[in-house]
């Protein structure tokens, strides 16, 4: 088997890792890189627990051949905090009660982050579309939607003040 060394930027830092030619990225993250924050809820693109950002776009890492990550920039839940400070999404998820069992939460936050990184004034429809591939069985989504809206508000305020949140 032709294993390959792939290199990419992971949460802002360069990483190289040897992978099998058809290894899926979720397994590389969880098993080879010990980044277990990214969850595996179904392994078939049907729940979104494994969502990561590749060049800023939300994807299911369970359907992503690791080879395809070569040369890209990847963000996972472990990279959302900024210098040890919670991202507004993380704060809002906690304060608005959008977290219950927590298994969908990392993927949910990554999908929401992909949205807010591009659009700090999303409509309710845009928010729901952004997380439509993330199944949450605990919350009924109500507080998740509120939390994302709340985080967007925080980010807009920060933008006015000139602060940055990656």
């Amino acid at each position: 088997m032709n294993t390959k060394l792939i290199s990419f930027v992971l949460n802002g830092e360069p990483v190289s890792v040897r992978v099998d030619p058809f290894e899926l990225f979720v397994d590389v993250l969880r098993e080879k890189l010990q980044l277990t924050g990214t969850k595996k809820g179904c392994g078939e693109g049907g729940c979104g627990s494994c969502t990561v950002l590749i060049n800023g776009e939300a994807v299911n890492s369970c359907l992503l051949p690791a080879m395809r990550v070569e040369g890209t920039s990847i963000q996972t839940i472990e990279g959302v905090e900024d210098n040890g400070e919670l991202h507004p999404l993380q704060t809002s998820f906690i304060e608005k009660g959008a977290v219950q069992c927590g298994f969908c939460t990392p993927g949910m936050i990554m999908s929401a982050k992909a949205l807010l990184d591009k659009n700090k004034s999303p409509s309710k429809e845009e928010i729901l579309e952004a997380v439509s591939g993330n199944i949450c069985r605990c919350t009924g989504y109500v507080k998740i939607e509120e939390a994302i809206e709340d985080a967007a508000k925080t980010l807009r305020k920060a933008a006015v003040k000139g602060e940055s949140h990656g």
Partner: peptide, 23 residues
């Protein structure tokens, strides 16, 4: 009181440990 959940930070940062994460 609607106090914040104690497991909130761990669960929003990927630190929270589940059985399927154990090795």
């Amino acid at each position: 009181k609607s106090v914040d959940r104690r497991d909130g930070v761990d669960k929003t940062t990927g630190r929270a440990l589940f059985t399927s994460d154990m090795t």
